[in-house]
């Protein structure tokens, strides 16, 4: 339709555009610009060209953040998406499942910082409950300095993440499974297929679409993860749980390297977008072959 008046359109659209441009688009353009400068927050910036980018690529700590985040993403794909799918499969086959659906989703509701502070208390090696439980079971040899040991710190973070978000993916998959048409499933059942094979051979392929979105959320969300890492270890011990976001925040807000930090942020953002794009491409290409 044609608008009744120009002023009307302006009144409708302008507030959203203004706030959004002020707080997102302008700073985004500014961050790109800043990534080509060298600036310590004081005085006038100097031109760095691609200097910040080449430095980022040769920065061994920054490069290591990508392997840490890759481990985190793989672990959360298993502990969150895969586990969430399994839970949804079980739950949707039960009649009285309201309690489970509610209980499993509870952690999703809480601020990540609250969760991280709670789990820091659980993992604390001197007073924490985890080591106390192990002791009371006579398993003292499995006691660990969970967040201070390079072998366990990253895994501990993945574990907490799984504790929170398995319920989230369970909810997504449960909703998808409940929307499935019943006739196909009924006829398979009449053919004598077992519940397990109905789930893996019929239901999972039918919710393919949702699964790929879930995987995508898990990957892009993982790349942006900050709260848990910041509170539980802040990248320590000695940078072994450092992820791109914690490192970026340190570069800017501790070392005062605005240009360098901006370059890091652009690299991470581009990496995220590229992964999302590639994932979409791959998904489109393979869908044809699998479609029923």
């Amino acid at each position: 339709m044609k608008p009744t008046s120009r002023l009307g359109v302006f009144i409708l659209v302008a507030p959203a555009v203004l706030i959004y441009c002020f707080a997102v688009i302008l700073p985004f353009i500014g961050t790109i610009a800043l990534s080509f400068l060298r600036w310590n927050g004081f005085g006038s910036p100097t031109w760095a060209g691609l200097g910040n980018y080449s430095r980022a690529l040769s920065d061994s700590i920054f490069r290591s953040t990508f392997s840490h985040v890759a481990i985190y993403i793989v672990a959360t794909l298993i502990l969150e998406v895969l586990l969430g799918l399994a839970l949804a499969g079980f739950i949707s086959s039960l009649k009285h499942s309201a309690f489970y659906r509610i209980a499993l989703f509870v952690p999703v509701m809480l601020p990540m910082v609250v969760i991280a502070v709670l789990w820091r208390a659980i993992f604390n090696s001197d007073y924490g409950i985890l080591n106390a439980i192990l002791a009371s079971l006579g398993l003292t040899k499995f006691q660990h300095i969970w967040l201070g040991d390079t072998k366990t710190a990253l895994f501990a973070i993945c574990f907490v993440s799984g504790w929170v978000f398995s319920g989230f993916y369970m909810a997504i998959f449960t909703a998808a499974l409940n929307r499935l048409p019943t006739d196909v499933i009924e006829s398979a059942r009449l053919d004598g297929s077992g519940e397990m094979s109905i789930f893996t051979k019929i239901k999972i392929p039918m919710i393919r679409q949702v699964t790929s979105v879930a995987i995508l959320i898990c990957i892009t969300g993982g790349l942006q993860g900050f709260d848990l890492f910041y509170v539980l270890t802040d990248g320590g011990p000695y940078h072994t749980t450092e992820v791109p976001t914690t490192f970026m925040v340190k570069s800017v807000f501790r070392d005062g390297e605005f240009g360098y930090g901006s370059a890091l942020s652009i690299i991470v953002s581009v990496a995220g977008l590229a992964m999302a794009y590639l994932f979409n491409l791959w998904q489109k290409r393979t869908r044809v072959d699998v479609e029923y």
Partner: peptide, 24 residues
């Protein structure tokens, strides 16, 4: 154009703008 601008916002992660937002 306005709609595309907002769609861009769906893709931009917070890291891509918070440094300059802080300065602003």
């Amino acid at each position: 154009a306005v709609f595309l601008l907002f769609t861009l916002g769906l893709l931009l992660p917070i890291q891509s703008y918070f440094i300059m937002q802080n300065q602003e």
